[in-house]
């Protein structure tokens, strides 16, 4: 299956996920929420977001990224 133009958006998505895996804008911040640092809550949310994004990627773009239809056979 040929790649679609929108598939290239995944590179932007993945790049953003990695770039802000560490919340640089909270550097030096000591703010806490519910007893834990705010940057730790960011981490929790970010990992959940990454799982949602990754799940979305596996629906189609995953195979188009390797230029294959579906995996041949069922193994």
């Amino acid at each position: 299956m040929p790649r679609r133009k929108t598939d290239y958006l995944w590179i932007v998505v993945f790049g953003t996920l990695v770039a802000f895996g560490i919340p640089w804008f909270l550097w030096g911040s000591t703010a806490t929420w519910a007893g834990l640092p705010v940057w730790l809550w960011w981490h929790v949310g970010w990992m959940v977001l990454a799982t949602v994004a990754f799940a979305g990627f596996t629906r189609g773009a995953w195979d188009r990224g390797m230029s294959i239809e579906e995996v041949p056979g069922d193994g």
Partner: peptide, 29 residues
């Protein structure tokens, strides 16, 4: 201090997952 959590998150949760696809899936194929 606990910042190691963030290092492991980027390393294991994100970068390794992407390499899982780019290297791992290709090697599997």
């Amino acid at each position: 201090g606990p910042e190691w959590i963030l290092v492991m998150g980027v390393m294991d949760g994100l970068l390794f997952a992407l390499l899982w696809y780019t290297i791992g899936y290709r090697q599997w194929l």
